[in-house]
């Protein structure tokens, strides 16, 4: 749906040049809720603004829905933009227009007949739960309600893609939740591919199925949310993951860890169905070993359970080896932790 091929973006201001993007390769499939996370200045906004060509790449190709944007004329680009909705951190609603008129704007621009506009706008306001606010002005709405209007407006032209640049960053955690749930419905009910920019890992955890981590204009890690959360590789990714799941042995446990001669520590990661099986019990029963659970954490990601445990296994070396194999056969990821 969205593809970027070695995209570079350099801003030149007088004698200051900023390399905002340095060779981005990216693929967002139809139906994805694709998250992009990174610290401030990583280039996330620049990246998302390339998708609807608010910004032009200095080098490289941006392909949306099979069309190479670089090759389109201005009017073709405008037509393409109607296929891509966008919502913003500060909502960007017109203060001078009612909620109804705000949502209607893309339809007015497309010169749709009045009756059709009326019907479509009310349908959208219903969808976002703001029908009774049609005659209000943005200043009379809360932040969460304003973002709902933003979403309704972005959906008005029936887009295939919705871009969200820090769409929940100005909202409190509870409102954030409700907006994220709404985005999920947008994805499922309208089958719209969504790209979410954020600096909060909890947002990714809540709604995304894929994630890209950005740092200094590059994508340093990319994959399914489950994989990245389970196995963050880059230090920055680890830091982000740490903000939502504890996946390392607490220091206090580490200190009191007694290194008995024939015990080893393993990091065991279990996903999905297997997570509900009593595998620790099973492995103990089937092998001549003792298992000490040093740490365990269970997280819900994308309606899938992700369990991360640190197990201290004591016993004969061969028994431990067999136990590890048993866990692996069960579908668990097992890694020995060498201190």
């Amino acid at each position: 749906m969205i593809e970027m091929k070695s995209v570079y973006k350099t801003y030149k201001r007088k004698d200051v040049t900023t390399e905002a993007l340095k060779g981005i390769d990216l693929k967002v499939e139809e139906g994805d809720i694709f998250g992009v996370i990174g610290y401030s200045g990583a280039g996330k906004s620049t990246l998302v603004r390339l998708v609807n060509y608010l910004e032009r790449p200095t080098d490289g190709e941006v392909i949306v829905d099979g069309q190479v944007l670089n090759h389109l004329s201005d009017s073709q680009l405008r037509a393409m933009k109607k296929q891509i909705g966008m919502i913003f951190q500060h909502f960007n609603l017109l203060e001078s227009k009612t909620i109804f008129d705000n949502v209607a704007i893309p339809l007015v621009l497309a010169k749709k007949p009045k009756e059709e506009i009326k019907q479509r706008v009310m349908e959208l306001l219903d969808f976002v739960g703001l029908r009774e606010k049609a005659k209000s002005y943005p200043r009379e709405l809360s932040g969460g309600q304003k973002q709902r209007v933003g979403i309704a407006r972005a959906l008005a032209s029936n887009p295939k893609i919705l871009l969200c640049d820090e769409a929940t960053s100005a909202l409190d955690p509870q409102t954030t939740q409700s907006i994220l749930q709404l985005l999920k419905r947008v994805n499922q009910e309208y089958n719209i591919t969504i790209m979410i920019i954020t600096h909060e890992m909890s947002v990714i955890q809540e709604v995304c199925n894929r994630v890209a981590v950005m740092e200094a204009g590059e994508i340093i890690e990319e994959g399914s949310v489950l994989d990245v959360f389970g196995h963050p590789k880059h230090p920055t990714t680890k830091n982000f993951v740490k903000t939502v799941i504890h996946n390392s042995i607490p220091e206090s446990v580490k200190r009191s860890l007694k290194k008995t001669g024939d015990s080893k520590v393993f990091r065991v990661e279990v996903k999905g169905e297997v997570a509900s099986e009593p595998i620790v019990h099973q492995v103990m029963k089937a092998h001549d070993i003792e298992v000490n659970i040093l740490f365990a954490n269970m997280t819900e990601i994308q309606e899938t359970t992700l369990v991360i445990m640190y197990l201290q296994i004591a016993g004969e070396a061969s028994a431990i080896e067999k136990a590890v194999q048993f866990l692996k056969d069960k579908g668990a990821g097992v890694e020995e932790v060498v201190e």
Binding site: M80, K82, L94, S157
Partner: peptide
């Protein structure tokens, strides 16, 4: 608010539409 112009551009509004439907009403 420059964000309004950004929103207008993201909708694929023409320059004339940006002036007429966004700039002038907001500045009225």
């Amino acid at each position: 608010n420059p964000g309004i112009i950004e929103a207008a551009e993201s909708m694929g509004a023409t320059p004339f539409q940006i002036i007429w439907h966004f700039l002038l009403p907001e500045a009225f």
